[in-house]
Amino acid sequence: MANDVTDKLAVLIDADNARPAIVDGLLAEVAKYGTAHVKRIYGDWTGPNLNGWKSALLDHSIQPIQQFAYTSGKNATDSAMIIDAMDLLYSERFDGFCIVSSDSDFTRLASRIREAGLIVYGFGETKTPKPFVSACDKFIYTEVLVGANEDEEKATSAPMPAAELRGDTKLLNGLRNAIKDASDENGWAALGGVGSILNKRMPDFDSRNYGYAKLSGLIHGIGLFDIEERQHGNAKHVYVKLRAKGK
């Protein structure tokens, strides 16, 4: 999966399904993947429910797009955001899109952008429906992006205990399979290769979801894998291996 910080990205935010508290962490996360050449946020700015976003827009040069709620119970914001996304896609000026919403209505949009050969980063709360998560190349849960200066959960919560991690069958199977597939003839796998495989197979995989800032910390926390550092030139690289039973 492409991960070039020179990539030109379009950031589209559904204000009805995202909180202002994430904005600092969101844009910092986007900067890991590329440069936000377009930053737009969609909603009905005539109502009071989006007041919390207004100062954030000025501070971060995010362009508000007005979309009136024409009919009660219908989300016109989604349609406006999808139309804009397709216009930007057809302009052929971007390498990828960041779709910020917890709404499953953007599932087809994410799939369509990927069909065109562009990368899609999704951002939403843990309640986001699985089809939208799976439609993205990578999905980041916004709970891990909340700034430490907010009266909410920290960007990285307390690490989950080993017993709880070991009880997560999906996590353990994903790690084991990724290590096996990235390993050499001696069973050792470069941690970077393991992370790349995990991200391709599990778009929402993120060590921060388990309270660890990095994948190496998560693997250490589980305590079921052998880990070693190797010096390559001036850099140290981490390798992991499935631990033999009984150790």
Rank of each mutant, 00 (worst) to 15 (best):
A2C: 00
V5P: 15
D16G: 03
R19G: 04
I22E: 05
L26E: 01
L27Q: 04
A28R: 15
E29P: 00
E29W: 03
T35R: 14
T35D: 06
V38N: 00
K39W: 08
R40W: 01
I41K: 02
Y42E: 06
G43D: 05
D44Y: 04
P48M: 01
N51S: 15
G52K: 09
W53H: 11
A56P: 00
A56F: 10
H60M: 07
F68V: 11
Y70S: 07
S72Y: 09
G73A: 02
I83W: 06
A85Q: 08
M86R: 07
M86N: 03
Y90H: 15
D95A: 04
D95L: 07
I99K: 04
D103I: 07
S104G: 09
F106T: 01
R112K: 13
R114F: 06
E115Y: 05
G117M: 04
I119M: 10
V120R: 04
T128S: 10
K130W: 13
S134I: 08
C136I: 09
F139D: 07
T142K: 03
V144S: 14
V146F: 01
E152W: 11
E153S: 12
A155H: 12
M160S: 11
T169H: 09
L172Q: 08
N173T: 07
R176I: 11
I179Q: 07
A182W: 04
D184Q: 02
D184S: 04
D184I: 07
E185D: 13
E185R: 15
N186T: 12
G187F: 07
L191Q: 05
G193Y: 09
G193K: 12
G193C: 05
G195V: 06
K200S: 12
P203N: 02
S207T: 07
S207R: 10
N209V: 00
G211M: 05
A213T: 14
K214W: 07
G217Q: 15
H220I: 13
I222L: 10
G223R: 07
F225N: 04
D226R: 13
I227F: 02
E228H: 11
Q231E: 14
H232L: 13
G233Y: 08
K236I: 12
Y239F: 15
V240L: 06
K241F: 03
R243L: 11
R243K: 15
R243Q: 14
A244W: 00
